[in-house]
């Protein structure tokens, strides 16, 4: 019985030893890959930051209001540094996954493959949000200026509506890209967009009925009462 126990113990220890010996290179390989990941990610972070600084990306972000939004969110880092950090973590996570896969753990490869396949969607969604934000800022400012110069009564409301509608559109597109409840998002977007439009129609209809009546009266009943333009020639 003692022999059997010893044999079993030796067998188990040998199996453990063999397994460990077999696994150590995997660990080493994983560590090397992760280490390389740190170096490569760090290098890319440095390069990306330098390029963005040279391309005056921080000024661009300031122009389009991105810096202001980051500041409001208590993120005081320069956009070029932030972009460098994003690149660092993206590259590092890729190497980390690759390192984990080198360990040869059961099921991990499938999980990692699925995660890697999902990453482009995450980045596409982030890109959509960023573009939506920049376009929203640009167009809302254009709407504000056009409304002020056209003497419209509430320029800020016009500007805010433009910004809000573009934000809704970008958010819905980003969620669709992430494949998060696509049907629900599409339906929610349609309802929200429709609600905004209906709200505006009702608001203008009720709030602006006096104005509309005056315009119609002036147009059809008393055309001479219309405000006459200045006779100044500006050029």
């Amino acid at each position: 019985m003692q022999d059997t126990f010893t044999e079993t113990l030796v067998f188990t220890l040998r199996k453990f030893y063999e397994g460990a010996v077999e696994f150590v290179p995997n660990i080493l390989a994983a560590l090397v890959i992760i280490g390389m990941g740190l170096v490569v990610a760090g290098l890319l972070k440095f390069i990306v930051r330098k390029i963005l600084v040279l391309a005056k990306f921080d000024r661009f972000c300031a122009d389009y209001g991105a810096t202001l939004v980051l500041t409001r969110a208590d993120i005081r880092t320069a956009p070029s540094t932030l972009a460098g950090r994003v690149v660092f973590w993206f590259v590092f996570v890729l190497f980390l996954m690759s390192g984990t896969s080198a360990l040869g753990l059961e099921g991990s490869n499938r999980l990692i493959a699925a995660s890697i396949l999902y990453l482009p969607r995450v980045f596409a969604a982030l890109l959509i949000l960023l573009i939506g934000f920049l376009v929203g800022n640009f167009l809302s400012r254009a709407a504000l200026l056009a409304s002020v110069n056209a003497h419209l009564p509430s320029p800020r409301i016009v500007s805010a509506v433009v910004r809000f509608m573009i934000a809704i559109l970008a958010f819905a597109m980003a969620l669709d890209q992430l494949q998060i409840a696509s049907n629900v998002v599409t339906a929610a977007f349609t309802i929200a967009f429709g609600a905004v439009m209906l709200g505006l129609a009702i608001a203008f209809g009720l709030g602006g009925q006096d104005v509309a009546r005056r315009v119609l009266e002036r147009r059809f009943l008393n055309p001479k009462e219309e405000e006459e333009p200045d006779e100044i020639s500006h050029l």
Partner: peptide, 14 residues
Amino acid sequence: VRVSVERMIESFRS
């Protein structure tokens, strides 16, 4: 010539 100064000032205020 016809000039609406008030309208110009209102544009500025806006």
